[in-house]
Design a protein around this nucleic acid. Structure first.
Lengths: 128, 128
DNA sequence: GTTTGCGTTAGAGCGTGCTCTAACGTCTAG
DNA sequence: CTAGACGTTAGAGCACGCTCTAACGCAAAC
């Protein structure tokens, strides 16, 4: 046996088997190699690509954009457009990061407030 | 006139008027005060609350959880549960942050690769 | 031989979070 | 008085990204 099964690949990449097959159907993946009886065998290169996809998804890139990127990669050319896509997403991720850091501060503050309140409401019952 | 119109509030909070009314309908907001002829007038406190909601949403908290939180706040008690909700979300945000930072590095790396490639492919045409 | 496990397909279905629609009311300007 | 801007409602509709279904097939285990 060479290559990974759908199950293994799904586990490695944190996606469901259904999702993997769906990604292939819609063209995010090139057709995956098959065993004699028609089962998929993912190569390491497939896995790497899927890992990239899963990271892009996890950071909010729309499937539509991943598809566009995949098509550029498939065509072999379009470096400039790929660059633009990735740079656009990088900017998106940066802004999300920033927003989350802000929210984290707010949460820390709120949580501290609640903790103070909870502690004040149950003064040393001995059960803590 | 006292208080903000739906339009103003939507702008301040980065949500649509539709979304604001929908939030109220589903119970994320207490019923907003009205003018004599039935138009909403949001107070500063309303705006603050909506800003909090919008930040929670923007960092991926499901509406279901925001609803739960809103109900705890409305009840006036449940500090412990609110705490748990916020702490859960904080953890979620932290993990998302971490994931995004990783993805950012990957993007930086890929982008650098493409930039090198693009530069190599068009060596000083004079059109740059 | 048949049961069990694993994988396959195309297409239907679904949860989430809005977003839009249509019909109506009221206020202001001209 | 009319026109236009602005806001209201309940409910329908929609985009997205899966997720599930049903029917099928192969292959090893019993």
């Amino acid at each position: 046996m060479s290559g990974w099964t759908t199950r293994e690949t799904a586990e490695k990449c944190g996606l469901s088997m259904h999702t993997l097959r769906w990604y292939e159907r819609i063209g995010l993946l090139d057709p995956v190699a098959r065993t004699a009886d028609g089962r998929r065998r993912y190569t390491d290169a497939d896995v790497d690509w899927i890992l990239l996809l899963s990271r892009l998804r996890a950071t909010g890139m729309p499937v539509r954009d991943m598809l566009q990127y995949a098509e550029l990669v498939r065509s072999g050319a379009g470096e400039q457009e790929r660059l633009a896509l990735l740079e656009g997403h990088r900017e998106h991720v940066r802004q999300a990061l920033h927003q989350q850091q802000e929210c984290l501060e707010l949460l820390d503050h709120k949580i501290a407030t609640y903790q103070r309140r909870v502690r004040a409401a149950r003064p040393a019952t001995g059960q803590d």
